[in-house]
Design a protein around this nucleic acid. Structure first.
Lengths: 194, 194
DNA sequence: CGTTGGCTTGAGAGGGCTCAAGGCCAGTGG
DNA sequence: CCACTGGCCTTGAGCCCTCTCAAGCCAACG
């Protein structure tokens, strides 16, 4: 488990053994069942989470009371309810597992202390934030110019992992399509293929 | 000018005079006319820009050849073509002034060196990236659940600065509305008001 | 004073939504 | 072991939001 996260962070900067150990000592293991909540809307999120195994989704409730999924995350991804975590305010989002999931988490306090004592960790998390920013920007820009059907096919082609493991209605929500319409899209597509 | 950017960065961390001077010495002043390009699509972006005065937009060309605006930025905002800057690859985006604009810029090399020598700057830019992430996430999520007209009114109410200074057709592009349809929305709205 | 760029208008079309059922498992309890 | 329930996906009709296309208008500017 430590090897897994160690391997991950070494992609961003060169940490020596003592630095890694300091980091490891702050990590807490958490096991979650299927459909279990990591964070519920309204709570303040105090942790940054790293997925060892499993799959989660982040969603919020829109003005009509429907769940809207803002992201998925799986093995070797960091996630948190960023606004809540950074500002220490109640979260607008809930984060819930889709499969049963194992995470390592680190508290904001510990992480901030780590930034003070070992600036390389600040670099790590600067780069992670930067990459997330790039990814979300690309997602919005690409999907903006696509019709529903193209978004669906793009998602299927580019994220087969998610596609296999996430139920259709959640994919629909993520792609900003109603489940009904997605269903009719799928129907057309499969008719053409077969 | 240095006071302006100094005031800005002090909101994020406590810098002493020598640290500030080191920072200032790396900044380059650039004056841009109206509709002048800061970065053109295809170029590698080597600078991070801070706006002293003026207004810029970032846009890309979609598959049908239309300009799509991904963000605006004005006084006291940082901007860059993030993916290009971070990965040192050709930019998918162009960044162009809307009004004549004064910026301070710092090269990637200088900034990365600054991160090495004064970790507090790494903090600064981690927090900036984090805030941008939060902002873009909120934008996508809020606008996703709104109809065109609501997006337009939300934008007008929440970003009056941009609303005054940016031409309608650019606002339309940013809000993912065609100029024609925005025009008819404006017609309805004003009829109701008057 | 002609040209250009930005905004407006209107008709027609279609993508994608809502609503209301119906079908299809997988799990659960008796 | 079987009926029952609850989640998830599918279907279809009707409709409206928003787009495309094609002009026309007006102000700014060289």
């Amino acid at each position: 488990m430590k090897e897994q996260i160690g391997k991950y962070i070494k992609r961003y900067a060169d940490f020596n053994k003592s630095e890694l150990d300091k980091f490891y000592s702050k990590l807490q293991l958490q096991q979650l069942g299927e459909k279990e909540f990591v964070i519920k809307e309204g709570q303040v999120c105090n942790y940054n989470y790293f997925i060892i195994k499993g799959l989660v989704r982040s969603f919020y409730i829109d003005k009509d009371g429907n769940e809207k999924i803002s992201f998925f995350a799986l093995e070797n991804w960091w996630f948190t309810s960023m606004e809540s975590y950074a500002m220490q305010i109640p979260s607008l989002y809930s984060i819930q597992t889709i499969e049963s999931t194992t995470v390592l988490k680190i508290s904001k306090t510990d992480l901030d202390n780590l930034f003070e004592s070992i600036p390389k960790f600040e670099r790590l998390f600067r780069l992670i934030a930067q990459n997330m920013l790039i990814a979300i920007q690309r997602k919005t820009d690409i999907y903006q110019q696509m019709k529903s059907k193209e978004r669906y096919e793009h998602f299927r082609n580019h994220f087969p992992d998610f596609f296999q493991r996430v139920p259709q209605y959640m994919i629909a929500s993520y792609l900003e399509i109603t489940p009904e319409y997605l269903s009719s899209l799928r129907k057309n597509t499969s008719e053409i293929i077969s």
